[in-house]
């Protein structure tokens, strides 16, 4: 496999009509890594991917592949594979010809094209569909063709633009595992764009969280999950309770906070002093029922298999989300507590 040791994005910026879609992305991708670009729609993640692929010219900054500058090359000279959200399969070509297209563009000998196409077909288990047109395949099969078409060239980098967003929930889980398996067995380097935090956490070695074209945090799944850098990342990482509060006292890393009808102890993210306005982030699964906690009123109870998701209201009228083992009735008064280590306090 032709590859690089590292791919470096240096202050990559892209403007659309005077507005920054991507404002200065700097990132080094090492060979063999699986990077996820994560963020809500409009955060610049697809822009970043298109800039990498060469489908969008940069407004500023540069991209370097080891020592060679890459951002001045057209997409066909970069040798990256790309899987599009809509799959973008050629509708007039059979599955086999779709997969062979890139190999033919490289003018490889005919038997090598055949051999590698066969390999790619069996890799995604589509041998018996080789002669069909893309329109005759199901969504999941089309998805697999798109992946095979991108990886058959053994590209130095595979770019995936929300490849699972058009699949149903069950298939999405299957394909997710499939993508990670291919990444490992083929030794690919992958940049994967998604708005789904679960997908990003489960697939990637490193995540880049983007918001409004800016990088909010770069880190491993554990980093982001356990130590989100700010409330926006926390929001994305499943801290569903983000409650505006005020700092009462600071004891080292532990701060006492009050507000939204709750009094809690939490862990400070960044320097804080008494009187500061803060946001306390708590995952629903870290907010427990019982003990000598704060009283709240149950409003909505949702059955979720092993546990129940409860939305309750504090005395000040703010909504809190928690998990419960037994089913409380709407209108019940319960008390809630959270361990200080599981409550993150962000400056607001």
């Amino acid at each position: 496999m032709t590859g690089f040791d590292e791919l470096r994005l240096d202050g990559v910026r892209r403007r659309f009509g005077g507005q920054d879609a991507l404002a200065g992305l700097s990132l080094t991708i090492r060979r063999g890594e699986f990077i996820a670009l994560l963020g809500p729609s409009g955060c610049g993640k697809s822009t970043a991917l298109n800039c990498l692929a060469g489908l969008l010219p940069l407004s500023e900054g540069s991209i370097w592949q080891d020592g060679a500058r890459l951002d001045t090359l057209p997409p066909e000279k970069r040798g990256f594979g790309m899987v599009f959200q809509s799959y973008a399969l050629f509708p007039h070509l059979s599955v086999r010809k779709n997969i062979a297209f890139g190999l033919q563009m490289r003018r490889l000998p005919r038997d090598e094209v055949r051999r590698r196409t066969d390999q790619a077909l069996s890799l995604v288990r589509l041998e018996e569909h080789a002669k069909k047109l893309p329109g005759q395949l199901s969504g999941g099969q089309q998805q697999r063709v798109a992946i095979a078409r991108a990886v058959v060239l053994e590209p130095s980098l595979v770019l995936m633009d929300e490849p699972l967003s058009n699949l149903d929930a069950k298939l999405r889980l299957e394909m997710r595992t499939e993508i990670r398996r291919l990444h490992q067995t083929l030794g690919l380097t992958t940049v994967y764009v998604t708005h789904d935090q679960e997908e990003a956490l489960s697939l990637a070695d490193r995540l880049v969280v983007l918001r409004d074209g800016r990088v909010e945090q770069i880190g491993t799944p554990e980093d982001l999950h356990e130590r989100p850098a700010n409330r926006h990342v926390a929001d994305f990482m499943g801290y569903r309770n983000l409650l505006p509060m005020k700092v009462k006292a600071v004891h080292g890393p532990v701060v006492a906070v009050e507000g939204s009808g709750l009094t809690l102890e939490g862990t400070a993210v960044g320097p804080l002093s008494p009187g500061d306005d803060v946001v306390a982030g708590i995952r629903p699964e870290d907010l427990h029922e019982g003990g000598s906690g704060v009283p709240v009123t149950v409003e909505v109870v949702e059955y979720q298999g092993r546990e129940l998701a409860v939305e309750a209201r504090t005395q000040s009228g703010d909504a809190v989300h928690l998990r419960a083992a037994t089913r409380p009735a709407p209108g019940d008064q319960i008390t809630v507590t959270a361990a200080p280590a599981r409550v993150l306090v962000f400056p607001s």
Binding site: A53, G54, L55, P74, P75, E76, R78, G79, F80, G81, M82, F84, S86, A88, L89, F90, P91, H92, F101, G102, M105, R106, R149, A150, L153, L159
Partner: peptide
């Protein structure tokens, strides 16, 4: 769909090949 030509570009097809192999057919 303009994405088809973009896909062809990422697969190594130049301007001319994209037109001949994708758009024209």
């Amino acid at each position: 769909d303009p994405t088809l030509e973009r896909a062809a570009a990422t697969l190594g097809a130049g301007r001319r090949q994209r037109f001949q192999r994708i758009t024209l057919p």
